[in-house]
């Protein structure tokens, strides 16, 4: 089973019954999460991330589609893989009137983990000295930590974190990031959904971006960023206005940014330099604009919301395996 991807879904669909009729939350989602490493699961609010995670964990029923975890078809085969999966869905949920320790002890009892393990994971999440307090008295960050502690009770191969840094302070965010990176380097698979894209960019090896319940782009972070990285350059030139006219004539899209020009669609930056030099315009600065995950994300998802066809975009990033 070593070659199997950690998560694979195909044609996954879910509609909720609401007062306004049926609401499509996930439509035809094809997700591929390779085993090992950190995989970012990104999408705007309401795009279906939590819904997909719930379906994977058997908490809600899919209308149609198939899902596997480590090659096991789920939810049918979930009992066989659940011990390898730790998950936090949306927000931590425990019994408010029990202490953090009691909550963990009950969960440990359910899976037959030794009691000493509870102490270990409380230590690991820096909750040991508050372990006897009622869960209801925890701060949001402490609740998140307890949820992380719960997932570690099993020593899982796949961790599913739905917005794990929600409510954490900067130190907490870094801790979660380090934990995820560490887990990924130890060969575990982490599926993390987050709105802090800078975070994801730092730790994720691969990402999937979804919008309105289907996949917009997927692949390694470098491929997704790189596919756009070569296309935009920032040019410092002596006569920007003339340069802009010239470049527009040559078929590039340009935009003034102070004394600089931003040229889009420049697959080969040298071509820009050459064209300007031929016209006697000398370039004193040329920097490729490396987009960050956030701008790629916004580019993809705002287009999506405006109703651009998603298929052409997904293929444009070309990173899907």
């Amino acid at each position: 089973m070593s070659g199997a991807p950690a998560i694979e879904t195909s044609g996954l669909r879910k509609t909720y019954r609401t007062r306004r009729g049926r609401q499509v939350a996930v439509q035809g989602l094809d997700l591929h999460v390779p085993a090992g490493g950190v995989h970012g699961f990104l999408g705007p609010n309401g795009s279906g991330k939590t819904t997909s995670i719930r379906m994977l964990l058997g908490l809600i029923n899919a209308d149609s589609g198939t899902m596997t975890i480590f090659g096991h078809p789920v939810p049918d085969d979930l009992p066989a893989v659940i011990d390898r999966v730790g998950a936090i869905v949306e927000s931590p949920k425990f019994f408010p009137a029990f202490s953090g320790r009691t909550n963990l002890e009950l969960l440990a009892g359910a899976i037959g983990a030794p009691k000493s393990r509870v102490g270990e994971v409380l230590e690991a999440t820096h909750l040991a000295d508050r372990a006897k307090d009622h869960y209801a008295a925890y701060s949001l960050g402490m609740k998140q930590r307890l949820a992380v502690a719960a997932t570690l009770l099993k020593d899982p191969d796949l961790l599913i974190f739905d917005e794990p840094t929600n409510g954490l302070d900067p130190a907490g965010i870094r801790e979660v990031r380090d934990t995820m990176r560490d887990l990924g380097q130890r060969g575990k698979t982490v599926l993390v959904s987050s709105h802090i894209l800078a975070e994801v960019e730092q730790v994720a090896d691969t990402v999937s971006i979804i919008g309105r319940g289907h996949l917009l782009a997927s692949g390694s972070v470098s491929a997704i960023l790189g596919s756009q990285g070569t296309t935009v350059v920032r040019v410092g030139v002596s006569e920007p206005d003339r340069a802009a006219t010239l470049l527009a004539y040559e078929g590039w899209t340009t935009r003034r940014e102070g004394t600089h020009l931003v040229v889009e669609g420049a697959s080969d930056p040298a071509a820009v330099t050459r064209a300007l030099a031929l016209a006697g315009l000398y370039v004193h600065e040329l920097t490729p604009v490396v987009p960050d995950l956030e701008s790629v994300f916004l580019d993809l998802t705002t287009h999506e919301q405006l109703g651009a066809p998603p298929t052409s975009r997904a293929s444009r990033w070309g990173g899907r395996k």
């Binding site: 964990l57 009992p79 730790g86 869905v89 949920k93 969960l107 899976i111 099993k154």
Partner: peptide, 9 residues
Amino acid sequence: GTWLTFEPR
């Protein structure tokens, strides 16, 4: 929900 991620049956 948390419980079912430990025992899905």
